[in-house]
Amino acid sequence: MYDVEEFWKFDMRVGLVKDAEKIPRTRKLIKLVVDFGKEERTIVTGIADQYSPEDLKGKKFIFVLNLKPKKFSGVESQGMLIVAETEEGRVFLIPVPDEVPVGTKVW
């Protein structure tokens, strides 16, 4: 079990995917350019085996922002997309309603 204080350490925000493209020579990686209101970040997600970049462009999702940057196939990811995943590995996107402003804190 984790203390709730551990949960509050995560900076989760609503972001709008401005651009998305498959990372060449990879099977699952998509590079996202995400608008968080005061800044844009590059975020890499590993869902290209189930979703296309077009499924993500222009939509709002929840992201974790305060993770250490990590490189995937030469692209630095500055956060993580939050998704739902079944035990069988099926991934579901969790859309955010249009009226929620970008940059809004999630808790």
Rank of each mutant, 00 (worst) to 15 (best):
T104R: 13
E85M: 12
V106Q: 09
L29K: 00
G46N: 04
Q78K: 13
V64S: 07
K71L: 10
Y51P: 00
F61D: 12
Y2C: 00
D19T: 05
I30H: 06
E76I: 09
E85V: 13
Y2R: 03
P95A: 05
D3W: 03
K18S: 03
V17P: 09
I30S: 02
D11H: 04
K9C: 03
E39P: 03
A20F: 03
S52Y: 01
D19W: 00
L32Y: 01
P69Q: 10
G103P: 08
E40T: 15
K60E: 09
F61G: 04
E99A: 01
K38W: 03
P97F: 04
M80K: 08
P69H: 14
V106E: 11
K68N: 13
K18F: 01
F7W: 13
G74T: 05
G46E: 02
R41H: 13
G58D: 13
R27L: 07
I30W: 06
I62E: 12
E21C: 02
I82N: 14
M80P: 15
V83R: 09
A48S: 10
V100C: 07
D98I: 06
P24E: 13
V44C: 05
L93D: 06
F63L: 10
V96G: 06
K59M: 10
K22F: 00
I47P: 04
K68A: 13
E76T: 13
P95F: 10
I43F: 07
V100K: 09
K105W: 03
A48L: 10
I94K: 02
V83W: 12
M1N: 00
D19S: 11
A48T: 04
D3Q: 09
P97N: 05
K22S: 04
D49R: 07
A48Q: 02
R13S: 10
L67M: 15
R13P: 02
V83A: 14
D49Y: 00
V102R: 01
V14N: 07
Q78L: 14
I82V: 15
K60I: 00
E85G: 05
V64Y: 00
V106F: 15
A48F: 08
L56I: 05
F92E: 14
E87N: 13
D98K: 08
V34P: 05
Q78W: 14
K31V: 04
